[in-house]
């Protein structure tokens, strides 16, 4: 295999990026209204909540774990943002409430996985239901509707023609990618996810590394919740339901290996944008909304199969 092709194949986000460009070209010609500024803006804004959370889950997946509790976690954080916004107003307090809620939930996930030694899929599956139950118990099924506009700032305002959610996404992408590439913790995540035993023998704390990844998901989900509330203007008890599938799909479709150790933040965002474009394309092409879940499932399967085949092609050791 020529060296150039090999390098290209080795870049985790390369296939998704190529596919995204091709899809955008196809949609530009076939789907009427795809290139409308309003549609693009809408598209990007919708992707932001997904993308911000995917940045966190990406780190968890890189460390060799998984987090499927984020759908319910977003719901709970959104309620914290909404409830504090409703009673106190302002932006900072509701945002902190959302992030705090996320950090607590993420810490519980992380502690159960690392200290309790329970597989992350079981912990986060249990938390997916437990947190949703908690939303219903705390709110008693009540919706939050009258959220003041200063609380909604993160979702509504724009700076110099660029909407605030997009700015947040780009800033977070740069920050998380820098942390991931340059900080000790960021490197440890790759080491622990690539080979946990080897990482432990090298003196890294696999527990602490993975715990912090789960906490990061909480922080980012809290921020995403503020954007979500800002855009939606209200919170229903089913907020974020099913989002966990989109997030996992974004991460693996983008090119981060589900078995850990390989991938990047760019991959997670590429995956999130790709999923946003596909869902948008389905709407523009008049495909009924009921097919969305099937498309997501097919995408996840396609992505993980490609990952497996690519590993085989490059003769990498599957971990």
């Amino acid at each position: 295999m020529p060296a150039g092709v090999r390098t290209l194949l080795l870049r985790p986000e390369a296939p998704a990026l190529i596919f995204l460009v091709l899809l955008a070209i196809v949609l530009a010609f076939t789907a009427e209204g795809f290139l409308d500024p309003a549609n693009l803006e809408d598209n990007i804004a919708r992707v932001v909540v997904l993308g911000v959370i995917a940045l966190g889950v990406n780190q968890v997946v890189l460390s060799g774990e998984i987090d499927i509790s984020v759908g319910s976690m977003l719901g709970l954080c959104a309620f914290a943002v909404g409830a504090v916004g409703e009673s106190q107003g302002g932006l900072i307090l509701p945002l902190l409430a959302g992030i705090g809620t996320g950090v607590v939930a993420g810490s519980v996930n992380g502690a159960l996985v690392t200290l309790g030694r329970i597989p992350s899929i079981i912990v986060t599956l249990g938390m997916l239901y437990a947190l949703r139950g908690m939303i219903l118990v705390i709110t008693g099924g009540r919706w939050i509707t009258n959220i003041p506009s200063d609380t909604r700032a993160l979702g509504l305002q724009s700076v110099a023609g660029v909407s605030v959610p997009v700015i947040i996404l780009v800033v977070l992408l740069v920050v998380v990618e820098l942390i991931s590439r340059n900080s000790t913790w960021g490197r440890n995540v790759f080491a622990v996810g690539g080979n946990r035993r080897a990482a432990r023998f090298a003196g890294l704390s696999a527990g602490r590394t993975r715990f912090l990844a789960f906490v990061l998901v909480g922080v980012l989900t809290g921020i995403a919740a503020a954007i979500y509330v800002g855009r939606a203007g209200g919170v229903q008890t089913n907020a974020g339901q099913g989002l966990e599938l989109q997030v996992v799909a974004a991460v693996v479709v983008g090119g981060t290996s589900i078995s850990g150790g390989r991938g990047s933040s760019v991959a997670a965002i590429t995956g999130a944008v790709l999923i946003g474009v596909i869902l948008n394309g389905l709407v523009l092409l008049d495909v009924p909304a009921e097919w969305q879940s099937a498309m997501l499932g097919a995408l996840i399967l396609l992505a993980i199969s490609t990952d497996a085949l690519r590993r085989r092609l490059l003769r990498e050791q599957p971990s």
């Binding site: 998984i66 499927i68 599938l245 996992v248 799909a249 693996v252 589900i258 009921e290 097919w291 969305q292 879940s293 099937a294 498309m295 997501l296 499932g297 097919a298 996840i300 399967l301 993980i304």
Partner: peptide
């Protein structure tokens, strides 16, 4: 991961 994918796929096909 496989059955997480087919969970979405089967439910989506049903819907």
């Amino acid at each position: 991961v496989v059955t997480l994918g087919t969970l979405a796929l089967y439910r989506g096909l049903a819907l």
